[in-house]
Every structure is written in structure tokens, then in C-alpha cells.
Nucleic acid binder design. Sequence first.
DNA 1: CGACATATTGATCGACTTCAAGTGTAGTGG
DNA 2: CCACTACACTTGAAGTCGATCAATATGTCG
Lengths: 239, 239
Amino acid sequence: MSHPLVLNLARHDRLTVDEERVVEALSWRIHEFASAEDMVREDARPNESCLVLQGFAARYQILASGKRQLSALHVPGDFVDLHSLLLKVMDHGVIALTDCTAAFVPHEELLRLSETHPHLTRLLWLSTVIDAAIHRAWIVAMGRRSAISHVAHLFCEIFLRLEAVGLTDRYSFYFPLNQAQLADMQGRSIVHVNRTLHFLRSKEIMTWRDSVVAIHDWAGLEAIAEFDPTYLSLQIEPR
Amino acid sequence: MSHPLVLNLARHDRLTVDEERVVEALSWRIHEFASAEDMVREDARPNESCLVLQGFAARYQILASGKRQLSALHVPGDFVDLHSLLLKVMDHGVIALTDCTAAFVPHEELLRLSETHPHLTRLLWLSTVIDAAIHRAWIVAMGRRSAISHVAHLFCEIFLRLEAVGLTDRYSFYFPLNQAQLADMQGRSIVHVNRTLHFLRSKEIMTWRDSVVAIHDWAGLEAIAEFDPTYLSLQIEPR
DNA sequence: CGACATATTGATCGACTTCAAGTGTAGTGG
DNA sequence: CCACTACACTTGAAGTCGATCAATATGTCG
């Protein structure tokens, strides 16, 4: 069984045996978080970066009014907090949306790796660039898609990302979030998210009950979302 | 006079003389674009990356309905299309919002640089990570700020980014875009952007006439935007 | 006839109005 | 925590009006 980060990077380009060893030799510190706990705090200056092993996490910011916006959702295998390696100061927080297990690695070791392993470095770089591509897809969805198309787009994305890490079962997957968390991803009210879910259910496109999402009409969902998976970079290429 | 990319990178960390030489030795190809021309096309697989020398550019996506959303604004000095180096396929297009001059550098040379100059590589990586941080700020603004706060936030950001490259004059700057382009950044209609600008004008906070933005009450603008410049990473630090 | 000034036209943009649709707030009950 | 209702507010769509500017046409004068 390979290390989760090896599996993550190997989804975009082949790794050499040496590169796999280097990743596995990093000193990973495992830590568990309860749902709603901060994994990384906003404005902090972390000296390690974290990877999600189990559970769902999200990047977030809170406004003075108390309103919260999630700017990214992270699933098992994602190297969530690689950004802090270079940003130094967190512009956002990372929160556990469910109980989570995370692995932390010291920035110092990642810096050393960047001095000696250019190809591995580019793959780490890639993972932050994919984060940015996903951010852009969210911006487009928030700005120009209807509420229904937006939520459909999000479920298309989540499905493909979970499928890539083997966490789907045909067209359904375990998704133990609540509608308030989904509303904070969409930048809409809970009531309105509820309305859009009601619509998708009534059209027999998808359901979400007891923490399980079941997509009954993938083609229909994709069509409503005008979904194009290019931005997820789910192909192996020399990088 | 240093190369624009040297100036860009040196805003976040010191460069050695050797590093400056390496950047300047890259084979830059200069190209001019008329307003509304594509600098990089969506779905393309570019083999070079481009930097904005003059003018304003933006990342964008177009939906089937014809609606357009800009996911980033780029000002002179920005290494806009570094993302394509690792993404390979463009998930978005880059368009000139005004007449623009851009400099292109082959991916091949950037790859070679990444093999030999780890510190420079990290600074290039940083520039993409800052793009991501700006994307997050936009997501938060689109999702949870009022239309007025959103537009105020955008003008705070643009002001600081232009100030960093010496393109401001006290609290005013040349900004030759139109309200339709601003609407496509905000994900709102032209009419509503017009309403928000009217509000800011009526409160004597800022004006935008004849392609010149003048901020009359910076503190007021910052307050409406709840602006925190952390995400722009405008400090020099070892990275 | 050419040189120059004055209209006409069309395109673009900003400002504004009206009305309809989308969305949020507050509250209920399961 | 989900589902739903009622009502108010925010925002969008469509359209009008006026200002500006460039390109073209027209007119006047030497």
C-alpha cells in the first residue's frame, strides 16, 4: 500500500521508485480532528503542511457579520495546506467538516526536497495549481451559473474527485456534510440550497439522504451543470 | 532597469545576481494584443507562458448561454499564464481587456530552470499560489459580501496591486476598463454594477470617470470592503 | 479644383427607470 | 438537521436617454 501522497501525485504523472521513497521518508505526523475543529488557523504562520487522510475538510474565511464562506472542499488524499509553504501567512483557515485524520510534514523537509528533487517539486506545485483551477471553476459557477446549475456542478466535481480516490460506489458516495456547509460553499442561504436540492430530487436527477449521495441521472446532472472535467487535470502526463 | 519578471519576483523575496541573470537570459518573445483579443485560448495546450508588460488582461470562461465570467484580473508585471506550464491544457482563456503588450517564454526553458534553480522555481510557484489566494478572496467576496462591499474590495485590491508596480498617483490610477468588464468580474449585471458605483460616488468614497479611478476616502473604502491585504503577500521574506 | 470647417451617422458607453425573477430572513413543524 | 412557507429585499432583463467619439458626408471659400 503506497503512501497517500504518492497516490495523489501519481494521478498526474509517473513517479520513479526513488521519488516514492523520498515521499515516504518524509516525517509525517498524524493528527485527528473532530468535526468543526480548525486544522489550520487563519493568520497563522504554520511551519508544517497538512494532507487529508480521512474525512472532509474545507478552506474558509469569516466576515465581520459572522457570515462564512468556504473557498474549497478537500477530500481524502488532498494536500490541503501546501500553500502555506510559500505564502508563509495563512490568508484563510482550514476546518474539519467531519471528523478527520490528517498528516503533517515540516516545511523544512519540503524545502529540502525542493532543492534536490525538481520533478517531485513540480508535482507538488501542480497540486496547488489544480487547487487554483478549481477555485476558478467555483468563481465561474458563483458568478454566472444559476443556483441549480451551481449545485449540480459541485456534485459533478465531488463525484469525480471521490471516484479518483476510490471513494465512490457506482454513482453514489458517502457524503456526511449538512446543508449549512453546502450553503457556505455555494455562497447562498440554507433555504435556497434546500430549494435546489428539492429540484434535483423532484427531477429524479440525484438524492442526498442519510449522508449518502446517489446520482440517478449522471448525464442529466452534467447537462444542468454544463460540466467539463478538464480543470481537474485527471490525466497522467509528463510534467 | 531590471526585467519585469525580476521586479515581480523580487517583491516577495531577494534574488541573487545570478538569479536575475538567469531570468533575463530567458528567450522572451514580445507580442502586442488589441483590446478584446485572446492572449491564450481555452482548451489550448500552449508551449509557452506569458507575462503582461503593459495593459490589463483577464482570465475568463464563457458558458453556453453566452454569459462570461472573469476569474482574475491581471496588471502589468503579472506572470499570467504560468499555470499552463503544469496544467498542460488551459481550463480558461486569457483575454486582453485593453491594448496589451505581453512577453512569452518557452515552457522548455522554464522546465530547465526548474531543474537547476530551486529558489527561483519556488518564487515562480509562489506567484501561482498568490493567484490562488486572490481567487479565494474573490470567492469569499462573491459568496458573502454585498454587491457594494464586493466592488469596494475589488478596487482596494486593484489599487494595492497597481501601487506595487508604481502605476498609481497618490490615491488615483488609470483604469481604462468599462462597466461591462467590471460586471463580468463581479458576476453581476452591468446595471447593478452601475448602481454600486453610483452609491460609492454619492457617498464621496470614490469616482471612476474618463478611465481614471480616484479614491477620495481610502479608509471608508477599506471599511466597506472589510479589506485585509494579507492575501496579496506584499512582503519580502525568505521563501 | 483643393483646403478646410461643419453636419450626419453609427457605435460605444454611462446613467437611469420599470418590472419581474431570484434569493434571503424569519419562522414553523417533523 | 431537514423540509417547507410567507414575505421582503436584492438583483437582473429590457429598454430609454444623453454624451462622446470616429468616420463619413456635406458645404463653403479661396
